[in-house]
């Protein structure tokens, strides 16, 4: 059973008086495997939110079909097993945290008794146990994001769909959200989330899809896409390297930059790393650091986006 299957999903909007056609999502095909964290990448306006809204029935597709847990998305009942956090969530600000979660739980048909325990656990999980009786209008942005996550989990969903869960959060807030997502994976849930914050994706996603102007440009495991072994360059920082040594490095094809008594060596060919390190030792230089630069998801992302824009 696939948690998420999308076939040829397309959404066109008609804008303005001229009813000009704008294709927000163009024949998207995608499958998400059980228990994985899938990162849906794209710049603003790429169609990430449109995809998510189509999946949840907030928009009707122009063409194409999609299934959640093997049931067509038009089937309202399938949402019983789905959790959703919208982008920059807006909630009923007149409710307290506990009332808010109770309300959403009741929409899933859960009883107040069943919810009482669940809400305690959720509030603890998102570190809002102290804010239980605080109305949401007094919440900070980070707190709103966390209560939003709690809301998405109130039904113990099998599939969790998060739209930009880390946007607008400070580093600590982002780490908290990352930890929660990883915990959900441990519980066997499937997580599909959109983002444009790449380090988060590299850190936690099993697979990613890159969406550019409504089209899926690349999809696969992060290491496959980035190429695990591809080191594009190496930077070596050395102290007390004699002039003779520096010249030898340059002969090997390295670039040398002097900064006081430190020397920064940049190698475009990683296979020469050992030779350079030997050379440094021979000249009694002290190795301060050695940093291999891999091709990052960011490079890939910029390349994909750049290709389209060019």
């Amino acid at each position: 059973m696939k948690p998420l299957r999308i076939e040829g999903l397309t959404k066109e909007f008609r804008l303005g008086l001229g009813r000009q056609r704008v294709v927000a999502l163009d024949r998207l095909d995608l499958e998400v495997e059980p228990g994985e964290i899938f990162g849906f990448l794209g710049h603003n306006g790429a169609g990430k939110t449109t995809t998510i809204k189509l999946l949840l029935g907030l928009l009707a597709p122009t063409a194409g079909r999609a299934w959640i847990l093997d049931r067509p998305i038009q089937d309202v009942a399938v949402k019983q097993h789905v959790g959703f956090l919208p982008e920059s969530p807006y909630f009923y600000e007149y409710l307290t945290a506990a009332e808010f979660l109770t309300f959403y739980g009741q929409l899933f048909g859960l009883s107040r008794q069943a919810l009482a325990k669940k809400i305690d656990d959720l509030l603890t999980m998102v570190s809002l146990a102290d804010a239980r009786h605080l109305p949401l209008r007094k919440f900070s942005k980070g707190m709103l994001q966390r209560i939003g996550l709690a809301q998405a989990l109130v039904n113990d969903p099998q599939v969790v769909i998060l739209d930009e869960p880390m946007s607008g959060l400070d580093p600590i807030g982002r780490r908290d959200v990352r930890d929660i997502i990883l915990r959900l994976k441990d519980e066997g849930k499937t997580i599909f989330f959109s983002t444009h914050i790449l380090p988060d994706v590299e850190m936690i996603c099993d697979r990613v899809g890159i969406l550019v102007k409504g089209q899926l440009r690349a999809v696969g495991a992060v290491h496959e896409l980035v190429g695990a072994a591809t080191v594009t360059s190496v930077e070596i920082l050395v102290e007390r390297l004699a002039e003779a040594g520096a010249r030898e490095v340059e002969q090997l094809g390295g670039t040398v930059v002097r900064r006081g008594n430190q020397v920064l060596i940049k190698l475009d060919d990683e296979h020469k790393t050992d030779q350079v390190v030997d050379l440094i030792r021979r000249h009694a230089g002290r190795l301060v650091s050695l940093v291999p630069h891999k091709r990052s998801l960011e490079d890939l992302f910029l390349k994909e986006v750049g290709v389209r824009h060019a």
């Binding site: 809204k53 949840l56 029935g57 907030l58 309202v76 009942a77 399938v78 949402k79 019983q80 789905v82 959703f84 919208p86 969530p89 807006y90 909630f91 009923y92 959403y104 929409l107 899933f108 048909g109 939003g148 809301q151 039904n155």
Partner: peptide, 14 residues
């Protein structure tokens, strides 16, 4: 307008 409806429609609520 405030998009609070998103989370409601995303629940099993016709």
């Amino acid at each position: 307008e405030k998009r609070t409806i998103f989370t409601i429609i995303a629940k099993p609520v016709p």
